[in-house]
Simulated assay, not measured.
Amino acid sequence: MKDSIAQVLGGEAEVRSSSQESKVEIRDLDALTKKSDIAAALAKQYDFDEGKVKVRSIRPGYSESQIAVISLRLTIGKVVTKGGVVRIGWTICKIKERGGLPRCYRCLENGHIASKCLSRIDRSGCCFKCWDQGHKAAQCSNKSACFVCAAARRKDMI
């Protein structure tokens, strides 16, 4: 389908296919939980092969807990998120689908990450709130602005 659409559009636009993976977030993990523990627990509880779980990251959460982001095939991801919980060791952890597209921190556009960015423009110094250079959103006291409107106002963002 991607090739057919690309052929019809010609060089007018870039055509990309969406991933057939579901990103899932697991919260309330024990501080000692490892990637292998997560894969084993999910595979056992939802009856699939451990190799189908890709643990992308584990980061600290609140109160000495951890949060993991995993990738699963779309069909398995729907089953897992519908279940809502997984028992990992002695802990019952909450599962939810991770929404939204990834955002590139280089060009600030959605749909890809900085390591795969093909844009010639580097907007990494821009504020996410007002889109001005030289400060970050945490320190911004300016009024919120739309990225498209700010880009039209400033030619260096295009």
Rank of each mutant, 00 (worst) to 15 (best):
E12H: 14
R59H: 06
A151I: 01
A39P: 14
S19L: 02
A39V: 09
G83R: 07
G51C: 00
W90R: 11
Q66Y: 00
K23M: 12
R98D: 11
I76Q: 01
S65F: 01
D122G: 12
L32V: 13
T81Y: 02
A31W: 09
V85C: 10
F48D: 02
S65R: 14
I92N: 15
K34W: 07
A151M: 07
K34C: 08
K136R: 12
A68I: 05
N142F: 04
T33I: 06
S17W: 05
R16D: 15
C126W: 04
R27H: 06
S115F: 13
N110V: 03
A6V: 03
A150S: 14
C149F: 08
H112F: 04
D49K: 12
I26D: 05
I113H: 09
S18N: 15
P60H: 00
A39H: 12
V85W: 11
R16A: 07
A152W: 08
T75S: 07
V85K: 14
C117P: 11
G11L: 14
C140Q: 09
L74A: 15
G100I: 01
G125V: 08
I38G: 02
G61Q: 01
S57H: 05
A40V: 09
K143C: 14
M1I: 04
G11C: 09
L74K: 15
K82Y: 12
G89M: 01
V79D: 15
C140N: 05
S19T: 06
A43T: 02
A150G: 11
A150N: 07
A137Q: 10
S65K: 14
T75A: 08
C127L: 04
I67G: 02
K44R: 13
V24I: 08
T91L: 00
V148I: 10
F48P: 06
K44E: 15
H135S: 03
R103E: 10
K82V: 13
D132P: 03
K96P: 10
A151Q: 13
A152E: 08
E64P: 08
A13D: 03
R59L: 06
D49N: 03
L9Q: 07
T33W: 02
S63G: 12
N110G: 11
K143F: 06
F48L: 00
G11E: 10
V53M: 02
I95G: 09
Q133E: 14
K143R: 15
I38N: 05
R98W: 08
L74N: 14
I5C: 12
G10R: 12
S71D: 05
A68Y: 08
I26V: 01
Y105E: 10
Q133S: 09
S144I: 07
F48M: 04
E12R: 15
D132S: 05
S124D: 00
A68V: 01
R87M: 01
K44L: 11
S119C: 02
D156N: 08
R153C: 07
I76R: 04
D28T: 05
C130L: 00
I38M: 06
L101R: 13
A150F: 10
V86L: 07
Q7L: 13
K129E: 05
S19H: 04
K52T: 12
A43W: 01
R59Y: 13
T33H: 05
L72M: 05
K155W: 02
D122W: 03
G84E: 02
A137L: 10
R73P: 13
V86Q: 11
A145R: 10
